[in-house]
Amino acid sequence: MNRNLIPPLLCFAVLSGLAAHRENPTFKSVAIATLGGALVAWLCLWLLGRLLYLFNRKVRAAHGWTVVNETVARNFLFLIPYTVLALIADQILGWNATLTFASAGIMTSGTAVGADLMKLGGGKIANMLLPMAGGMGFTTLWMTAGMLLRVLAR
């Protein structure tokens, strides 16, 4: 497994756990949401990477899957500030807005992946639109899975 993926996966685990804690603060619920959130995020990151790999012919030819996967993992480090802010908002300010932070973080990280792929020689339009569309799909899938996990854990 790519080592750079560990911090983003931890972030997803924290965000998922926070959302579950707000709804049902039991150990079982939080544990299932945390583990499930990280696993679904891993799948989503892989899918996003594959989508970008598929539509970036030049990058694919010049650098291969490893570099695309690395770029996705590295840029999802941008999720860290959003996770810290979500923790502050939840624990200090008392808001129930974790998923807002998560979706903003996913979209920002996705855009950063696109920008990096452009630097590697990828197309401008593809790397502006695809990360946005992929980010939206990622957010929807991850949030729906999180909601289902929370329902299952009740």
Binding site: F78, P81, Y82, L85, A89, W95, A97, T100, F101, A104, G105, M107, T108, T111, A112
Partner: peptide
């Protein structure tokens, strides 16, 4: 204030990181 205001401030983190 949260749905638009905080979202806007969160989106600002992207350019800020650049």
């Amino acid at each position: 204030s949260i749905s638009f205001g905080v979202t806007g401030v969160l989106w600002a983190l992207g350019p800020m990181m650049t």
